[in-house]
């Protein structure tokens, strides 16, 4: 493969990584060499460092594998039959795909918020307390639940109806409930897959503010289709693109940089075109 190198590919395989900069605050170090769903090669050559207390955004056209990369980071893809992965994902220097690592443990430390709000069919309180029960938390649950709901900017709206079903909330509230649920256990990393795609602009703004706040305490990786959103909230942005030259539809990382640099001064022609909206 290396002999017939497609022109789209970055020159040395990881030119997309940041230029010389200190690497000692990388919490999740993702290096996907090849990723397959069955015989379908979904992603290749994607190297993304996710830094402590920062927000890292993944952008790119639909189907380029943003969700796939994100789901790799806490081994959600293990649920997919025929999923195969080459490369490594290091969390605090340990390869989470190494032999003997329990994916369940990984997911406790690297939480996830999904595109569609997905509260459980129980009360609001139990939704948020779910992770606490999961971790066998012995302390004051009510306190933790309140803190999480406050952090998710939902407390004022639901404090009087904590026993109502989580499904009775509006879509935006449900999504904030899911965020509250995810942060109640204080995972170190929070993965968010298009968390605002089902929300109206106002709810989106609230969640964006929320993310900025949360990034003080957590490390966040987010997939978004909304370039302004990435520009507004993300410290770093990675642009993924689809490579069709080898017959398949394989996603790969084109460019990764500080959001400011990436949006103001994109290096790669594909990034330039995408940011200027020249792709259909």
């Amino acid at each position: 493969m290396s002999t017939a190198m497609p022109p789209l590919r970055p020159a040395n395989g990881h030119a997309a990584t940041l230029p010389a900069e200190k690497r000692d605050d990388i919490v999740v170090d993702c290096h996907i060499r090849e990723l397959y769903y069955g015989s379908f090669k979904a992603v290749r050559d994607t190297e993304i460092p996710i830094r402590k207390n920062s927000i890292t955004a993944f952008i790119g056209p639909s189907g380029c594998g943003k969700s796939t990369v994100l789901r790799c980071l806490n081994r959600m893809n293990d649920l997919v039959r025929g999923f195969r992965f080459e490369g490594h994902v290091r969390y605090r220097g340990r390869d989470i795909y190494a032999h003997g690592i329990d994916p369940v443990a990984v997911r406790r430390f690297i939480g996830m918020v999904f595109q569609q709000p997905n509260p459980f069919a129980t009360s609001i309180f139990n939704n948020v307390a779910f992770g606490l029960r999961l971790n066998g938390f012995k302390g004051d649950r009510a306190d933790k639940v309140e803190k999480a709901l406050r952090a998710a900017a939902l407390w004022d709206e639901v404090k009087d109806k904590l026993n109502k079903s989580g499904l009775s909330l509006s879509g935006g509230q449900q999504q904030r409930l899911c965020i509250a649920r995810a942060i109640a256990t204080e995972p170190e990393v929070l993965l968010m897959d298009e968390p605002c795609s089902a929300l109206d602009p106002i709810a989106t703004r609230r969640i964006e503010e929320l993310m900025t706040e949360l990034s003080q305490k957590f490390t966040i990786a987010i997939v978004t289709h909304n370039l302004q959103q990435a520009q507004r909230v993300a410290d770093y942005t990675g642009f993924l693109y689809v490579d069709t030259t080898q017959g398949g539809r394989t996603g790969y990382l084109v460019e990764f940089n500080h959001s400011k640099h990436l949006f103001e001064d994109p290096q790669h022609p594909h990034t330039q075109q995408y940011i200027r909206g020249e792709f259909s």
């Binding site: 569609q116 997905n118 459980f120 069919a121 779910f130 992770g131």
Partner: peptide
Amino acid sequence: VPSRMKEAAIGMGATTAQTVWMVLLPT
């Protein structure tokens, strides 16, 4: 039971048994 709920539980690090007892069966 919507698969989204199951995914939510697994995404938070629930073991299979926890997913079944805390999400699937109650729902």
